[in-house]
Amino acid sequence: MNFTGKKIAIIGANEYQNRLILKAKELGIETHVFSWGGGEAGELNADNFYQVDVTKRQEIFEKCKLLKVDGVCSIASDLTNLTVNYIREKLGHIKNSNDCLELTTNKYLMRGALKAGGSPIPYYQVAKKNQNLIELCHFPYIVKPVDRSGSRGVNLVHNFDQLQKAVKESIEESFLSESIIEEFIEGDEYSIESYSKNGSHFILQITKKYTTGAPRFIERAHLAPAFIDIKLEEKIKQVVSKALTNLKVEFGSSHSEIKINEAGEIKIIEIGSRMGGDFIGSDLVIQNTKVDFLRLEIMNALGQDVSDSELTGDKEIESVISVIFSFDEKHYNQVQELFCSKIIDTAVNENYSGNVLSSSERYGYHIIKVPNSEVMKIKQVCQ
């Protein structure tokens, strides 16, 4: 497919968006990148960079219209996803509906749509600013902002006093000043990367997730493949596909997060109508399946058809791919020494302060690829 002469607008310039920028340039597409500025990787690699608040949707649209861009995209961020879809609508490009965007960026509305559609979810309720909380039973609960990602404002609470404090914190983190309180599900956690064409959903990868646990559940590592049996894999695919339809996802990438309890019951934690972050969509998918997820995202933005064969992937890959995050320099150096030649990418967070309260504050990461025979070695580091 020839991309020569195409122009694409990319919203955001952090390390995740930088993957998208580099892919577009690799395909011969002229990149126009919009972000806050500050020396981010994407700012330096963009063909053209515009320093602007990514929530200034009308301003960015006017510039995109003037530039006559052929597509607009972003990955790994609900905030930039909203801007992308606003501009796509104004330009008349293919996009998910406004209803879909609302349902996949507001956790409270998402829960309502999933419940109405018969998808399995935890118990939940919303909490608003200056609202009196009702006494709850059956602790613990997870408290989180209705409209943020990256573990911002997330807390596990075991009593009513903790609940009040956590709700206040999550409301302060929320753009809408709203928090969601939901039943805490014990069990293994997975993420699912999907691509949709006219309402048909293709599951590309199931990833095993590892977090810090309580209180904030910040991601420590991701592993693909997830090493689950075929029956569970098919069950996950059915549950996620139904949920995507319930949330009116019709086009492009999506990222779903689920937990499976000891009884084998699947509970949907949340779903975004965009590619997942933490290098899952940009790096792990292509290494694990050979499906070029970034290329698919760009094709979707340009309104180009994606064939079923481009979504099939390779089931015979005999290797394991993982991203491992370090929360301090000591752990980072240990991973570096342990895997050495198996590391395919690594970086340190220049803004690391030592206080990790969300995923953006971790010390650094390694993306590691090992043969299947070494899967236990990498699992031990992930856990």
Rank of each mutant, 00 (worst) to 15 (best):
T4S: 12
A9Y: 00
G12L: 05
G12R: 00
A13S: 15
Y16I: 08
R19T: 03
L20I: 09
L20P: 07
K23P: 03
A24S: 09
L27H: 04
E30Y: 04
T31S: 04
H32F: 13
E40F: 08
E40I: 00
E43V: 11
L44W: 06
A46N: 10
D47V: 02
Y50I: 06
T55S: 14
K56E: 15
E59T: 12
K63R: 12
K63D: 15
K68I: 00
S74W: 00
L82E: 10
N85A: 03
E89C: 08
L91Q: 03
I94E: 15
N96P: 05
S97N: 05
S97K: 00
N98A: 09
N98G: 03
C100D: 00
Y108H: 08
M110L: 03
R111Y: 02
G112H: 11
K115Q: 11
K115A: 08
S119G: 10
Y123D: 15
A127V: 12
A127Y: 01
K128V: 10
K129G: 09
N132A: 14
I134T: 10
E135K: 12
L136H: 04
K144H: 07
P145Y: 02
V146P: 03
V157I: 10
V157K: 02
H158E: 06
D161R: 14
D161Q: 15
K168H: 13
K168L: 11
S170D: 13
I171S: 10
S174Q: 02
S179R: 07
S179E: 11
I180C: 09
I181T: 05
E189K: 01
S194C: 15
Y195F: 15
H201V: 09
L204T: 06
T207N: 13
Y210T: 13
T212H: 11
I218D: 08
I218V: 11
R220H: 11
P225L: 01
A226H: 05
D229H: 06
I230A: 12
I230V: 13
L232S: 10
E234K: 13
K235A: 12
Q238N: 13
V240I: 15
V240M: 10
A243C: 09
L247R: 00
E250L: 08
S256C: 10
K259S: 14
N261W: 04
N261M: 05
A263I: 07
E265G: 00
I269C: 03
F279I: 06
I280L: 14
I286W: 08
F293H: 06
I298K: 03
N300G: 13
G303V: 07
E318W: 02
E318G: 14
V320D: 14
V320T: 15
S322P: 11
S322Y: 06
F325T: 08
S326L: 03
F327I: 02
D328Y: 02
V335I: 15
V335W: 13
Q336M: 10
Q336H: 11
L338I: 10
F339T: 05
C340F: 11
G354R: 04
L357K: 13
S359L: 07
E361W: 02
Y363D: 01
Y363W: 04
Y365A: 08
H366A: 09
I367L: 13
I368P: 06
K369V: 15
K377P: 02
Q380G: 10
